[in-house]
Design a protein around this nucleic acid. Structure first.
Lengths: 131, 131
DNA sequence: ACATTTGTACTACTTCATATAGTACAAGTA
DNA sequence: TACTTGTACTATATGAAGTAGTACAAATGT
């Protein structure tokens, strides 16, 4: 596990850990059933309090991203979502709006933003389209 | 000004105000030189402390989104960005990554996400492309 | 069976962001 | 001059974030 904490960031540490684990899974670097570092291992490696790692793992388990078992460890779960399609669309579109608003205020034109979007999306392992 | 505060949201109130003013500008509902509500007006309307509104306005002025003058009021500024293109790209692409990671974990395929992205972007008034 | 490892739960504490409350002031407006 | 407006300041209360330390139940390895 290669996780980097940016202490200058306003983003909470436990959230940065969540971000990077979810990112590694979405990139395909972590796959279902892969073992994650133990809470104490990762805490030692990042020089953080174990409670902070535990908080990140707890949140990831809550969201169905990983499975944890005391004594065994933490493992990547199968991709799944218990949310309805409409709720997922609502959540994502809210995030898309914030992104687009930022782009407009940065005076980035629509074509350029679209290119950056496509270029970024290309790196990730999406679920197959249902066609 | 039509601003709605979601008290159930984890997003700070002053940030919600910033979000919605930037959104209205990006949508074209607010244009350069338009007058914003006074701090005390908006505080009374939303039943909030004037300091909270002031914090939002201060942040917006800091980001060059609005111009404020004591005695006169707050006005929408011209669109501009003092950031280099590379910094803007970095900031936006980080936000795009977070969005795409969320989409992958929600099992939304690339084509669907692209459609939602285009559909949302279409509503906003982008800077013209330089072609 | 036993010792170890692992995630979890809990309390206590510090620090910082958020939000409110109230006052005061300088600049612009009428 | 009287009023409005954004700003600055102090003080206070609340909650999140992070650290520190202890304890416990479940899984593992021997």
């Amino acid at each position: 596990m290669q996780i980097k904490i940016d202490n200058a960031s306003t983003r909470p540490i436990y959230q940065q850990i969540i971000d990077q684990i979810k990112r590694d899974i979405a990139l395909g670097r972590l796959k279902a059933a892969d073992k994650l570092p133990t809470v104490r291992q990762l805490a030692a490696q990042l020089v953080l309090n174990p409670n902070t790692i535990s908080k990140a793992y707890r949140q990831l388990e809550q969201d169905g991203i990983i499975v944890t078992r005391p004594g065994a460890g933490a493992y990547v779960a199968e991709l799944s979502s218990n949310l309805s399609k409409s709720v997922r669309k609502k959540l994502l579109c809210e995030q898309i709006e914030l992104l687009v608003v930022e782009a407009v205020h940065m005076q980035i034109d629509a074509r350029t933003l679209g290119e950056w979007f496509d270029g970024t999306a290309k790196k990730f392992k999406f679920t197959d389209s249902e066609e």
